[in-house]
Each structure stands twice: as C-alpha cells, then as structure tokens.
C-alpha cells in the first residue's frame, strides 16, 4: 500500500512539473539553476520568477559593446546587462552592470559565473539572478 501511495505521489509531482511553465517551476529547480533549460532569459532563484523569451519579448544584443537586453514591447519591463568581458568559458567570472525596470532583484553591479556554455548560449549564475544569454 505504502509503495502505491509513494508511486502516486511521485506521479503527481512529475505531472505537475511537466505542466509548469518556467515562471511557475518549483524553487528546487531554480535553486540549482536548471541548466537543461535553453530558453534565453533571467531566472530568479527562490523567487519563483523569471523573465524569459516568449511571444512579444525582444532580445537585444550588441556584440561590440558586450550588452544584452531583454524587454517587452512597451518597455514596462526590461533588463539591460553590460558585461565586463564576453563570458564564454565555464567557471569564468564576469562583472555585470544591470539597469532594469520591473525587476528589483536585477539592478546594479554584480559578479556572475559561467556555469555552462554551448557556443550559442551561455548560462551565468549569481546569488540573486541566473541568466541564459546568447553568446556575446
């Protein structure tokens, strides 16, 4: 009986996780930074929040100026990040200067660490925000 109950609980949990959007995924996934996720965006560990590419979201890149910006079409929400160098190698640390609207957790200067890179995208982690950005 116990085994059936455990199986049922596990099935329910898997079902819920499969049906969730990025914004709704449980804390446990973000706390460890879901590096399987490939959607460009910002992910806030523990805050149950993300700002990721979706219909109507604009991705802005300037390779020479090392800037990445994600914004909605009326800029009521945006995050503009300027990198000290082009992040590309795992374990590399970069300083990011962030200007944002609508995301108090992503503001000011902070250090981020590259936790994954595949040539097209780079996964960057910090204490308050994780990012998946196109390679600069």
């Amino acid at each position: 009986m116990k085994r059936y109950l455990m199986l049922a609980a596990l099935s329910a949990m898997l079902f819920l996780m499969a049906g969730c959007t990025d914004r709704q995924r449980p804390e446990a996934v973000f706390a460890g930074f879901d590096t399987d996720c490939e959607t460009v965006g910002l992910y806030f560990p523990g805050a149950f929040e993300s700002f990721a590419v979706d219909y109507g979201i604009q991705v802005c890149i300037n390779h020479e100026r090392l800037t990445f910006r994600l914004q909605n079409s009326d800029q009521s929400e945006f995050v503009h990040a300027e990198f000290s160098s082009a992040p590309s190698e795992v374990s590399e640390k970069v300083t990011v200067s962030v200007t944002s609207l609508g995301f108090d957790l992503a503001k000011g200067n902070f250090e981020m660490e590259v936790v994954k890179a595949d040539g097209e995208r780079v996964w960057l982690a910090s204490e308050t925000v994780n990012m998946i950005i196109p390679a600069l």
Partner: peptide, 15 residues
C-alpha cells in the same frame, strides 16, 4: 549601427 561602429540587433517573434 552606432557611431562607434558597433551594431545592436533587436529580435522578436511575430507568431
């Protein structure tokens, strides 16, 4: 294209 020669691209899905 900016005066320093850098280029910014902005991309968004229409569908």
């Amino acid at each position: 294209t900016y005066s320093d020669g850098s280029v910014e691209t902005i991309t968004t899905d229409l569908k």
